[in-house]
Measured scan of single mutants.
Amino acid sequence: KRYRAVYDYSAADEDEVSFQDGDTIVNVQQIDDGWMYGTVERTGDTGMLPANYVEAI
């Protein structure tokens, strides 16, 4: 699945990823209600991200 960031996010922990509004997130997997795991296409960084900061595309 592919998602697009709708807000900027700065990683708060080493297992999270930072991204900017408009970034595409690929290979996304749902972890639980609030978190997903995926790769930021622009940077190649992979990690956890907050589900409410992205939307499906």
Rank of each mutant, 00 (worst) to 15 (best):
R4F: 06
K1N: 11
V40F: 02
E16D: 05
I31Q: 07
M36Q: 03
I25A: 00
Y53N: 05
Y3W: 09
M36C: 07
Q30G: 08
D33I: 10
A51S: 12
D23R: 03
V28C: 12
V28L: 07
Y37H: 10
Y9T: 00
T39G: 02
D32W: 11
Y3L: 04
G22S: 05
G47K: 01
I25K: 01
A5T: 04
V54Y: 02
Q29H: 14
V54R: 00
V54Q: 00
G47C: 03
T46H: 09
D32I: 13
N52C: 14
L49G: 01
R2G: 06
M48R: 15
A11K: 08
Y9H: 06
D45A: 13
Y3T: 00
E41F: 08
R4V: 09
Q29W: 14
K1E: 09
E55P: 02
R42I: 05
Q29K: 13
F19H: 00
G38N: 02
Y53V: 07
Y7C: 15
V17A: 05
Y3G: 00
Y3I: 01
Q29C: 15
D23M: 03
Y9G: 00
G44K: 06
I57E: 09
A51F: 08
G34K: 15
V40K: 00
T43Y: 02
G22F: 04
T46C: 09
D8M: 09
S18C: 05
E41K: 07
Q20R: 14
K1A: 12
G44F: 04
S10P: 06
G22I: 02
N52V: 11
G38F: 03
V54A: 05
G47H: 04
E16R: 07
A11G: 08
W35V: 05
P50L: 07
A11R: 07
V6C: 12
L49C: 04
I57Y: 10
F19W: 00
Y9M: 02
E55D: 07
T24L: 14
Q20I: 14
D15A: 13
Y7P: 00
N52W: 10
I31T: 07
Y37Q: 07
A56K: 10
V26Q: 06
G38K: 01
A5N: 00
D8C: 13
W35A: 02
D32E: 10
D13I: 09
D33S: 11
D23N: 02
G22N: 06
S10G: 07
G47F: 03
N52P: 09
V17W: 01
R4K: 09
D13H: 15
I31L: 12
T24N: 08
V6K: 13
D21F: 15
G47D: 00
Q20L: 14
G22A: 04
Y53S: 11
P50C: 09
W35N: 04
G38D: 01
N27F: 10
E41S: 07
A51G: 07
R2S: 09
D32S: 15
K1G: 12
D45P: 01
D33K: 10
A51E: 07
I31G: 08
Q29T: 14
R2T: 12
N52Q: 13
E41G: 04
T24K: 06
M36L: 14
Y9K: 03
Y7E: 08
E16L: 05
Y53T: 08
D33N: 11
S18H: 04
E55R: 12
P50T: 03
T24R: 07
E41D: 07
D8Y: 08
I57C: 10
V28S: 05
A56V: 13
V28E: 02
Y7K: 15
V28W: 06
I31V: 11
T46I: 08
E14T: 12
E16W: 07
Q20W: 11
D45S: 10
A51M: 11
E55Q: 12
G47Y: 01
N27Q: 09
R2Y: 09
Y7H: 13
Q29P: 00
V40N: 08
T46F: 07
D32G: 13
D32T: 14
Q29E: 11
A5K: 02
D13G: 15
Q29A: 10
W35H: 05
D21S: 15
R42H: 06
